[in-house]
Design a protein around this nucleic acid. Structure first.
Length: 282
DNA sequence: CCCCAGTCCTGCGGGC
DNA sequence: TGCCCGCAGGACTGGG
């Protein structure tokens, strides 16, 4: 489920292939059920994107932003199973969008296409003008890799909801999903139930440090590929961070830190939380 | 303000 | 063995 490290890996994978390339054509591929959700409608998007040049590719929380020379940008949201892949997707099934590129001026052998592949089809693509992009930025919290301890304190002070729920709220921090929320809280030794606004400074310091360490290491590992094998990098490689998960999907196994308690699974805000009841106290 | 259930969707695994 | 159901959850919506 692409979260910050997986999306960052996608962006780093496609960036060298896409920067300064001209898009010749954007094709929406026939999908079994519902067409991919777009704004504006596919025809308008195709018309705008045709013959534009990709200026840069960036990450915004869990979204990929492809900046065009028209000052508009394509914002791709992979949600649960969406992938951005260089060249052709490994399976033609579940391919959603294909962008054809003009031949690379210096490297004619370079891949001349990239695709959006999405097994479950929950992903979205939007074409935003600068004003719309600004509006999207305004509605998202800061990026956890850029946050100081003070930033964390300010963000968490906004809500008394359980800190686990706060970490999943993209308007509070942008980029953390269920896997990394569980892993970060475990490393921080903070109870997932603790009200966000009540966390002592010392715990916020641990949370800030744990977020940085875990997200950076997960990026180095090219993200987490779970047992369903859905997530792949832009170059179609598996992530490796799943081998370093300490609590996520580890219910019933012994905590690797205290080696006494057993990892517990509970449900918060409709999603699984995995934690160690002895290491993570209020 | 915040929670919950429902919505989209597919593949997998548990249970019978 | 085969089938059905529930579960996985990111973002969003509408009701309480």
């Amino acid at each position: 489920m692409p979260e910050l490290p997986e999306v960052e890996t996608m962006v780093r994978g496609v960036r060298p292939h896409l920067q300064n390339r001209t898009i010749i054509r954007m094709s929406f591929l026939r999908c079994r059920r519902r067409p991919i959700q777009t704004d504006p409608r596919p025809a308008a998007m195709q018309r705008h994107v045709r013959n534009t040049v990709i200026r840069k590719v960036a990450r915004l929380g869990k979204r990929i932003v492809v900046h065009l020379n028209t000052h508009h940008s394509l914002v791709i949201e992979p949600r649960m199973t969406g992938l951005l892949l260089i060249g052709a997707a490994p399976t033609t099934e579940h391919r959603r969008i294909r962008w054809c590129l003009a031949e690379h001026p210096n490297h004619p052998e370079a891949p001349n296409a990239f695709e959006f592949w999405d097994r479950r089809g929950l992903g979205t693509v939007r074409l935003l003008n600068p004003e719309q992009l600004r509006h999207l930025r305004q509605n998202l919290g800061p990026d956890p890799l850029d946050m100081s301890v003070d930033d964390w304190q300010i963000c968490l002070a906004r809500t008394r909801r359980p800190v686990k729920n706060a970490l999943l709220d993209q308007t509070i921090v942008a980029g953390i999903g269920n896997i990394y929320a569980c892993e970060i809280l475990h490393r921080s030794r903070i109870s997932p139930h603790a009200p966000a606004a009540s966390l002592a400074r010392s715990r916020i310091e641990r949370l800030a440090a744990a977020s940085r360490v875990i997200l950076r290491q997960a990026i180095r590992c090219e993200g987490s590929t779970l047992s369903d094998g859905t997530y792949r990098s832009a170059l179609n490689r598996n992530g490796r961070y799943q081998n370093l998960h300490r609590v996520y999907q580890k219910a019933g196994t012994r905590c690797p830190d205290c080696r006494r308690s057993v990892i517990r699974r509970i449900v918060q805000a409709g999603r699984s939380t995995f934690y160690c009841p002895s290491c993570q106290k209020h």
